[in-house]
């Protein structure tokens, strides 16, 4: 998490203080609730294909969002990879504000990271090219490895909707 230290020194300070107190404060994601969506009375909640299938279908109806070798048997640095993935997800959703209309797919091949996502066509291509370069440059300087963005654009938000519940 060196990049975080560089990024926001105050936050890092707070994190250090928190870690001293050793209190675990992350929210509990209960298995019976996480990744599942409730039916609304009006039946108008839009779900993508990813959201429509609960987590126990991973590997059967839908596949993984992170492709790396760290989770396999006898592999190195599983925790670092997970934290980096989390950071990448937060950074990309924040940089492409209100534009990312799917989950962010992170694929690690050799030492490169390829990030795939569905993006709404709400900004001009010029801005999009700028954001691609900006994201790749910053992420690669933090992760110390080449990062590639492989985006696919959709005309409207409704294009990714799989069903309404």
């Amino acid at each position: 998490m060196n990049f975080l230290n560089k990024l926001v020194p105050q936050v890092a300070l707070e994190v250090q203080q928190l870690s001293k107190s050793a209190i675990h404060t992350s929210a509990v994601c209960c298995r019976v609730q996480s990744g599942r969506y409730r039916i609304t009375t009006k039946r108008d909640r839009p779900l993508t294909y990813e959201m429509a299938n609960p987590p126990h279908f991973i590997g059967h109806r839908k596949s993984w969002n992170s492709w790396n070798t760290s989770t396999l048997k006898d592999s190195l640095r599983p925790s670092q990879t997970a934290i980096e993935d989390l950071f990448i997800r937060k950074f990309v959703t924040g940089t492409w504000h209100a534009l990312v209309s799917s989950e962010i797919i992170i694929k690690r091949q050799h030492n490169t990271i390829r990030i795939a996502a569905l993006i709404r066509q709400a900004i001009s291509p010029r801005k999009m090219y700028f954001l691609i370069g900006y994201t790749e440059e910053l992420l690669s300087s933090w992760m110390q490895c080449p990062v590639t963005l492989e985006l696919q654009t959709v005309a409207d938000k409704k294009d990714v909707v799989f069903k309404y519940i």
């Binding site: 993508t48 294909y49 990813e50 839908k62 596949s63 993984w64 969002n65 492709w67 799917s102 989950e103 797919i105 694929k107 795939a116 569905l118 492989e150 696919q152 959709v154 294009d159 990714v160």
Partner: peptide, 10 residues
């Protein structure tokens, strides 16, 4: 089109 599943699988 706009199918994230196809983008996921290598």
């Amino acid at each position: 089109f706009a199918n994230a599943e196809l983008m996921k699988i290598p």
